[in-house]
């Protein structure tokens, strides 16, 4: 097996730090009670602040709240869109259920000018400022937060690429920021 002995961190790659994708709406019908109900059952969180409106009004939040990073799970298949599952299995009868199900990735970052590389999850980081309110429209915007190079003991080079996504509501209030780091080697 050969290893990459030269830097991947070219001026073209460095120039991608700070590059942003388009700000896009990730909700279809805004934040809905029914999806919230399903979500909090799935994370097994019995907090009445998620559903008891009368009680929620007495809390410091003054209204029903959402789980801390709920707004990051809004990207769903829109009604009327081509069925991505049928498409994926039509194109590949042994689809893994992920490949080919792309929903178009609106707001995606431009690719880094790198050769084909293996990507490993290096960790996630979240910062939470506010819960969305019922009915809120949620928007997200991605950017390349940082690109750092590391050199392994065998002299091989790898990059740690961190994508930052800011989630906002229709008032442009920042709800949460997620950072996802991937090792590319």
């Amino acid at each position: 097996m050969t290893t990459q002995q030269q830097s991947y961190l070219t001026p073209e790659v460095k120039a991608m730090v700070g590059v942003q994708g388009e700000k896009v709406e990730v909700t279809i019908w805004g934040i809905e009670k029914e999806h919230l109900r399903r979500f909090v059952h799935a994370i097994m969180d019995p907090d009445p602040r998620y559903w008891d409106e009368e009680f929620a009004r007495t809390t410091k939040f003054g209204e029903v709240i959402m789980p801390p990073i709920y707004c990051t799970y809004m990207n769903k298949t829109a009604p009327g869109a081509e069925d991505p599952i049928s498409r994926a299995f039509r194109n590949n009868p042994v689809s893994d259920g992920i490949g080919g199900l792309d929903r178009g990735r609106p707001g995606a970052l431009p690719p880094l000018p790198l050769p084909q590389m293996r990507v490993l999850n290096a960790g996630n980081d979240i910062e939470v400022f506010k819960y969305p309110s019922l009915g809120d429209r949620i928007f997200s915007q991605q950017k390349y937060g940082s690109i750092i190079e590391r050199v392994g003991r065998d002299g091989s080079h790898m990059l740690i690429v961190t994508n930052e996504t800011i989630f906002t509501n229709q008032k442009d209030e920042v709800l949460c920021i997620t950072r996802s780091s991937g090792i590319r080697r």
């Binding site: 994370i43 097994m44 969180d45 907090d47 410091k60 801390p68 990073i69 996630n124 980081d125 979240i126």
Partner: peptide, 22 residues
């Protein structure tokens, strides 16, 4: 990554705040 922040949220209730988690 949804359950862990929820657990931290519970530790902070009713007036505290789960600010960051990695």
């Amino acid at each position: 990554q949804s359950v862990l922040p929820g657990y931290l949220k519970d530790l902070c209730l009713p007036d505290g705040w789960m600010w960051k988690c990695s």
